[in-house]
Design a protein around this nucleic acid. Structure first.
Length: 495
RNA sequence: GGUCCUGUGGCCGAGUGGCUAGGCUCAGCUCUGCAAAAGCUGCUACAGCGGUUCGAAUCCGCUCGGGACCUCCA
């Protein structure tokens, strides 16, 4: 029997067994993108990791409602007190409607994520579509005595909250340290004097006249603070307490810490049972971030146009690359690493295709059930995709041996192997055989014709002609392979 | 400055107190008209210095290196 599912909970800093609040239902919330720029490599990790989590939970039989938001308001350019919305700033530069920009980058995000075969969430709420919910929540927090209005803005009273709650329990921060550590590192913030305490954060910000995205509120024209959107939207669609809240480690503080504080101040309950955080994609050992300007855009990866790239890499190569690392480890980007993933992925897909053509024997030379169990155990151990993939490679090895007649598998075991490997590769990991997808329909009959012609030439020992066909095809992106069962081909994706 | 994470073989990247992770690369072999693919074989690492232990890459301490967060950030 496979081991039970365990997840690492940032809140307790421990591996915990996964017990949904209302089985078989699972509420899963992931902090989505801020749509004010094109997505880079790092932006794919969250969606990819939580896609596997989403898929695996569904695979295990849970009814998952997966909510991933689009942030199209509220993220401020510098800080809460300069009051310029990121989206609005781009609008001024490009002379477009703010929502036009948000839509544009949302589309770009969807384009990239879809290429990676990430399942769309059950609900994808926009922050701008939930202003009312956010205002209601802020009102409740004020009523509960944990927020105050100052000059048209509303701030969360961290000190008041900390009197009866643990502010910092998620990120492991100690309020006294935060207060003391403010010192030199903290910038001189304009309007900081509105706050009772430097650690107080904005729930609602007063908008200046130039500020394009603004809404009426009980406190005047303004816009919501950064953290409140996730609290409002997760509560609306998943309830005041739900199962899993995820995001990047860089959101741990202050974003998620503040979410917990807000939700607790409003609803008197911890919003999520499990908090899961994935690590960063690094480049030259440093975090890839918009603010550091070291991002490789996803479309640049797909078409190989970024100067650091030696070639184009397909979406599945990127996906496989990311899944070959555990989600809580940093993952360093490099051409060599990407190439290794490209090769390895192809090898795995070859084996997966082969498994459907295998002929069973009388007995099995290896323990299929154990292999399957090990693969489940890997994912049950905090979604350890690299170990799961290692097991799939072991299965691939056996598949190849069986295909070569150097190993046997019983008919019953073959069925187990087929169903399990297909389930894991396609359903759980969500991989796609890109070459196969391209190769069907129109291309295949033509290829079969050329293969036949070449084999005729070979039979006549006209190797010039046969090699010519092979070389020309290779140049065109079709690689021929002579096997015992005949000639097959692969399509190489090149820009 | 504070809090925390991390340092694995040519590259990427798992991992447990004692038993080969895996992928890629490289070399040799089998197969093949040649090549590719596939298979087989080889390459045994855990920053440094101490300590605990019968035994540590895995636990503890120190040193050195890298990184994250403390400010928008996936």
């Amino acid at each position: 029997m496979p081991s039970p599912l365990k997840v690492y909970n940032t809140l307790t800093a421990q591996l915990e067994s996964f017990d949904p609040i209302n089985p078989p239902f699972v509420g899963l919330y992931l902090c989505g993108p801020t749509v004010y720029g094109y997505p880079h490599l790092g932006h794919t990790r969250g969606p990819l990791v939580f896609d596997v989590i989403h898929r695996y939970l569904a695979h295990l039989g849970y009814k998952v409602r997966f909510v991933r938001n689009i942030t199209d308001v509220g993220h401020l350019v510098n800080d809460a007190d300069e009051g310029e919305d990121k989206i609005a700033k781009r609008a001024k530069v490009e002379q477009l409607e703010p929502m036009e920009i948000a839509q544009h980058y949302t589309d770009a995000y969807h384009f990239c994520i879809d290429k990676l075969n990430v399942k769309r969430p059950s609900i994808e709420p926009r922050a701008s579509g939930h202003i009312i919910e956010q205002i209601e929540m802020i009102k409740q927090i004020i009523d509960n005595g944990f927020a105050y209005e100052a000059n048209g803005s509303v701030y969360f009273d961290v000190l008041k909250y900390a009197q009866t709650n643990d502010y910092g329990k998620l990120s492991g921060r100690i309020l006294e340290d935060l207060l003391a550590g403010a010192g030199e590192a903290r910038r001189e913030l304009e309007g900081q004097e509105e706050k009772k305490n430097p650690n107080d954060f904005a729930l609602w910000k007063k908008a200046s006249e130039e500020h394009i995205m603004q809404w009426p509120s009980p406190w005047g024209q303004g816009f919501p603070g950064w953290h409140i959107e996730c609290s409002a939207m997760s509560a609306k669609y998943l309830g005041k307490t739900f199962d899993i809240h995820g995001g990047g480690m860089d959101l741990l503080f202050p974003h998620h810490e503040s979410e917990i504080a807000q939700s607790t101040a409003c609803n008197h309950t911890n919003p999520a049972k499990y908090w899961m955080h994935h690590n960063m994609v690094t480049i030259n050992g440093q975090k890839m971030a918009k603010s550091l300007n070291n991002g490789v855009m996803i479309t640049e990866l797909f078409d190989g146009s970024h100067p650091l790239l030696e070639q184009a890499y397909s979406p599945m190569t990127l996906k496989f690359f990311i899944l070959q690392a555990h989600y809580r480890s940093t993952l360093d980007f490099s051409n060599d690493a990407l190439k290794a993933s490209e090769k390895g992925f192809q090898r795995l897909m070859n084996a997966v295709n082969l498994v459907n053509t295998l002929k069973p024997g009388n007995s099995s030379d290896f323990d299929v059930t154990a292999l399957k169990e090990n693969t489940y155990n890997a994912l049950n151990d905090d979604f350890n995709t690299p170990i799961a993939i290692a097991n799939l490679f072991e299965a691939a090895g056996w598949i190849n041996k069986i295909n070569d007649g150097k190993a046997n598998i019983s008919a019953a075991d073959l069925e187990v192997l087929k169903s399990f490997i297909n389930a894991f590769v396609f359903d759980v990991l969500g991989l796609v055989d890109e070459q196969k997808e391209m190769g069907t329909n129109l291309v295949d009959p033509l290829m079969q014709l050329l293969i036949t012609m070449r084999n005729e030439a070979k039979a006549e020992k006209d190797y010039k002609k046969s090699d010519d066909i092979r070389n020309k095809l290779l140049q065109a992106g079709f690689e021929l392979k002579d096997g015992k069962e005949g000639t097959t081909y692969t399509i190489n994706l090149k820009p």
